[in-house]
Each structure stands twice: as structure tokens, then as C-alpha cells.
Nucleic acid binder design. Structure first.
Lengths: 111, 111
DNA sequence: TCAACAGTTCATGAGTAATTGAATAATGGA
DNA sequence: TCCATTATTCAATTACTCATGAACTGTTGA
């Protein structure tokens, strides 16, 4: 991942609706969710949802596939992982302090 | 970290100049760097630099302290760590696939 | 083929972010 | 005190992001 792609991914995540969107898609895993279901769950208009989903898709954070009338969106774990790696390794020069700091939170005693 | 703070941090990182800024500040550690040195290193005007540094500071990603005529900026490892934790744990529901995916890159065989 | 359904795209307008250069602090030395 | 240094703030401009609703595309079943 280069800086341009990282920037696209960061910009994609830097939005309330899109952060909610990712949070909804994660539990659905590879199976994904139809756009309509997501729209209803989040209480967001279809066009607005489409706008935000394509932002996430353009940034490589979600995938889309058509199934009959529905378009199914699923989170792209690799894309999110690559972004986190970029932040930790490229941007933060693999600083051990930062990695330790966020590894700690992920386990038990979140500070 | 709540979503509003995560959003502020993501927005702060979602910018070319500010990403470069973080990359410059990391090696300097707690000691930090004077604004003027950073401006020169990045080839950015003083006012523009000040603008971007205060964006990072507002998001809790860097700290600033005055030392005589200089203002010294240093990266806030805890702030960046908290953001990464938020992405991995809150937003991605601690999905093991994503954490594995970015832990792998940080070690040896980055895919 | 026609109508209903599921999503996307487009046009508009409102709000926000970024760049530039000039003006304004704040500090330290002569 | 006066001046040079260092950095921030302000005003103006430009560009971008987002929300909204209408129009459009693609798909299915009657």
C-alpha cells in the first residue's frame, strides 16, 4: 500500500456514516449484506448509502457483488489490515511504542 | 476513545502533508522537533505548517511545547495507538482476521 | 412487455477544508 | 527599548465533501 491508497482509505474511514457502515458489515463477514438491509438498519436514504458504500469500495475497504436484484456489500479485511499496517509500519516507522500501545488495548486492560 | 475522537483522528491523518508530518516526527520521539525545522524539511510555508500541526494537535496525535523561541512538536504515541485500537476493536469488533492480517505485515512477510 | 423492486447516478446547494500572503503575537539578544 | 527571530492567526480564495430528491439502470415476476 502506498501513501495515496492509505490516504484514500483514511479519507474513506473519516466519516461517521462510513464508520457505522464498517461496523455493521464486520459481523456479516464474507457473506455480506444487501444494500437495502444496511440502509434500513442505519436509517439512511438509498442514495446516501450508495454514495458512502462506493467511497468505501473505491478505497478498497469493502467489496460489492450483485445477487439477483440485490447488491451485496462485504467488508474487505485485507484492505483494513493493510491500512492499519500502513499506519503502524510505514507512517509510524514500525515504532515499537505505538504497536505495544495498541496491542495492549486489544487484549485485556485497555487504558 | 469514542467515535467522535476517532473521527477527528482519522480526519487529521487523512491528509498528505499531515501524514508526512507524522512520519517526520516519529524518529524524533518524545524529544520532538521545532516547527521551523519541520517546515524546512518538508518545504512547506510556516503558516501552512502551523495549520496542519494544530490539526494534528487538536486530534491528540501530537503534542506541542514552547522552548524559548521555538515550539517543539512531538508525536503522541498514545493517541495514534488509541486510534489504531479503535479501528481494530471498536469499529472492526476485534475481528481476528483483520488483526491477524495486519500483525502479519508488521513482522516479516508483508503480503 | 409491463410494472414493481433494488440500487446508482446526477444536479443542486450547504457546509467544511486547504492554500496563500499579510498582519499579529511571543521571545531573546544587542 | 529596539530589533530580529519564531511561530500563529486572519482574510480571501479555491476546492472538496456531503445531503437531498429526482431521474435513471438493471433485474425479476406477472
Amino acid at each position: 500500500m502506498d501513501q495515496a491508497k492509505a490516504l484514500a482509505a483514511l479519507s474513506a474511514l473519516a466519516n461517521d456514516t462510513r464508520l457505522d457502515l464498517v461496523r455493521r458489515l464486520i459481523p456479516a463477514g464474507e457473506k455480506g449484506l444487501p444494500a437495502g438491509d444496511i440502509a434500513e438498519a442505519l436509517g439512511v436514504s438509498a442514495s446516501r448509502l450508495s454514495f458512502h458504500l462506493s467511497a468505501l469500495q473505491g478505497a478498497g475497504l469493502v467489496t460489492a457483488r450483485r445477487e439477483s436484484r440485490n447488491v451485496i456489500y462485504a467488508v474487505n479485511r485485507g484492505g483494513i489490515g493493510a491500512l492499519v499496517s500502513y499506519i503502524l509500519d510505514d507512517c509510524c516507522c514500525a515504532d515499537p511504542g505505538i504497536r505495544a500501545c495498541c496491542a495492549a488495548q486489544g487484549q485485556d486492560h485497555g487504558h
